[in-house]
Nucleic acid binder design. Structure first.
Lengths: 105, 105
DNA sequence: AATGTATATTCCTTGACAAGAATATACTCA
DNA sequence: TGAGTATATTCTTGTCAAGGAATATACATT
């Protein structure tokens, strides 16, 4: 799991961008209009999202169409799933700790 | 989805703490030894993880035992699942964009 | 009560990052 | 090619968060 994914999602505007891309693809200017954030900041945010692997770009004439990169979400999903035991198991964590620390001495 | 979860996970030490807690619970001093980070920073990181809802605390004598909070991971899982369409659908995003933007005019 | 152990908090400094402003680059079409 | 549209980059500034050092708080044991 690459930590860059989390820092990319930790910024409100970027999180919003990802939420929007859940439904469809958008150009840079689309985000400018929708989020009411100036174009340079949108471009910067998109670059960070792109570097983190969360989004893809495709140039269409002068426009650049951004979309979600499924791979990033698959990786994220796999990571979450690796915690499944921690939310399905009804084992009391405190007892577990005491048991384990007793083993260690 | 609360964005604080992402900023909490975006810091390397905190990410490591969460990874460790996947397997068992730990006290503050356990993290100090394992991660080789000074105690005050560990406490600070744990506070942030606690505020974001990712971990729980239980006092045991002088120790404070930290464990994962399943609720946070369930929420995270639900959020990821809401993207399932974006990684299962083989619909080409570019075509999708062109189609939608044609509708809008 | 005194001492030791475990953890939390405060203050300070420094580095990272977001926004603003200005500018550069890329592509299109007349 | 020149003008217009779309996007990216650079530079600067202000803010926030992380780490270090010192200190405070909480509990335990004698």
């Amino acid at each position: 799991m690459d930590i860059k994914t989390f820092s990319a999602l930790a910024e409100p505007n970027r999180f919003q961008i990802v939420e929007l891309l859940k439904n469809q693809s958008y150009s840079v200017n689309d985000f400018v209009k929708i989020l009411k954030v100036r174009q340079p900041q949108i471009s910067k945010h998109l670059r960070i999202l792109n570097n983190s692997g969360l989004v893809n770009v495709k140039p269409v004439a002068q426009k650049r169409i951004y979309s979600l990169n499924p791979d990033a979400f698959i990786e994220l999903n796999n990571w979450i799933i690796s915690f499944e035991r921690s939310w399905t198991s009804r084992l009391d964590n405190l007892e577990e700790y005491l048991k384990l620390s007793k083993q260690e001495g």
